[in-house]
Design a protein around this nucleic acid. Structure first.
Lengths: 259, 259
DNA sequence: CGTATATTTGAAAGCTGTCAACACTTGTGG
DNA sequence: CCACAAGTGTTGACAGCTTTCAAATATACG
């Protein structure tokens, strides 16, 4: 799998315009040409990270805002007894460290769970960006709002959904988010059972049992260290998935005063 | 209790300067005099709501940004089988509907759980506010970031904390948040067992049992439809509460470019 | 004062966690 | 290329936390 990611990465270098981040920006439509050029400049200088690399530590200084060009990361907090709770997954096209603008230190950690390519800018420069290219600032704000909706749904998932439904719901969400970044063909998610258990708030033994349930219904399949989504429709039905919270819904008038 | 709230409310009218919202703003320190005057103007026109009133419906139009002068509300989502998951509590001094600037519709509902007094402005006007009084805009962004941290902690609470610890952790958080709004003397929280169960992702029967556990350790006490915090220190220890995620930590340099 | 809502209890069922041991895979170094 | 170590996956048994069900009591609200 590592090899496959490398190939993808090279593709971006050749045709940068189609990176997941750029793709996400374009989907929002109301950005002007100069905004996109500016955004490209921000992400032109990127850095590679190995799988397992901790990009940000709990309590660590928060100095940069980052844009994921390729690869997955997790945002998590650890608890007293040693376990950890994954708060959210960071996917290609996502931004993290947005609040570096405002907060001095991070309350959560970020760790790469695949090889990653990420671009970043210093927090101070990000602040300038917001004032000089307000449309782009609006996009960042939109992404922050979207993140909050995803967190809301994670609370519902962990608080009110049980068993296989809880797992299925997460898998569908991740697929929809990938699709939004132009990766709709990506049906193999780099998730092992430990990651799933940390994200769903269950033990790894139980994660294995739920995993088996979905597998026995021919909804998913295990492939090495990742999960293949076999029957998306079936997963979505089982999970009672309502895509609405992930749907593009930028307020029509919002672009008015700024464009 | 309703009566007590009425009295408090009158006090605000007489000495508006000390409303929880104003208090919160002052704590952030770097606002200038004109910012505070502007903020007061925003909240000068307020509206009262009865307990149980739904201020915002799931899927409803999102048109205003609101400032809570007094009273409590819950932000929640309902799930297929009829239950609901409380995502967060909205306390005196809090803002909600911030993303009305960006999103057309709400994915969550907001309901008053005590009589409330809230001021609000149209989303379009809020956008103007951000551009004309950038320091105030920064404060709103800071509040959004703080909300996200609270959501993160709610995920950890529901996902990785169990039994009485889970309940104690929420109670301590709410008290700390009230204290930040200048209500440190408020040791009686308007929470019944159903609200607690909806917030903690457990059944109301089990909420009752946990409740009893805390009560038997002389940590809390039941008073009518509310919970009295008897031993804050004990609750915090039991919960392993780390106040850090709620602590004021505005980046020192952030005010630079804008002041 | 009567109805609706909330609290309280006990019992039974079931989901989920823990423990412990073993198999398998992956990564590392010789 | 092999050997070893570390991490991950797999299983079964068992305990225990939580839910569900049902019914009685208490409290709140109009």
């Amino acid at each position: 799998m590592l090899q496959r990611l490398r190939v993808k990465r090279r593709a971006f270098e050749g045709a940068f315009m189609s990176s997941p981040f750029r793709r996400r920006l374009e989907l929002l439509k109301f950005l002007h040409r100069e905004d996109l050029i500016f955004a490209d400049r921000l992400t032109r200088q990127y850095e590679d990270f190995d799988k397992g690399r901790v990009l940000l530590q709990e309590g660590g200084r928060l100095q940069r805002t980052s844009f994921v060009l390729d690869g997955w990361a997790i945002r998590y907090k650890t608890v007293r007894d040693g376990g950890r709770q994954i708060l959210n997954f960071i996917l290609p096209g996502d931004v993290f460290g947005l609040y570096a603008l405002l907060f001095d230190r991070s309350e959560h950690a970020v760790e790469a769970i695949t090889p990653m390519t990420v671009g970043s800018i210093p927090a101070t420069q990000a602040l300038d960006t917001l004032t000089t290219t307000p449309r782009l600032g609006l996009v960042l704000a939109w992404m922050a709002g979207r993140d909050e909706r995803i967190l809301d749904e994670q609370i519902v998932r962990v608080g009110r959904r049980h068993g296989a439904v809880r797992m299925a719901h997460l898998l569908v969400e991740l697929h929809v988010r990938l699709a939004r970044a132009g990766l709709e063909k990506e049906l193999e998610l780099p998730l092992n059972q430990i990651l799933l258990s940390d994200a769903l708030g269950i033990s790894h033994v139980h994660a294995h049992r739920l995993f088996r349930q979905l597998e026995s219904k021919a909804l998913i399949e295990r492939r090495g260290q990742s999960v293949a989504l076999i029957d998306l429709q079936g997963l979505a039905e089982l999970a009672g998935f309502d895509v609405h919270y992930l749907t593009f819904s930028l307020r029509p008038r919002a672009s008015g005063p700024l464009s």
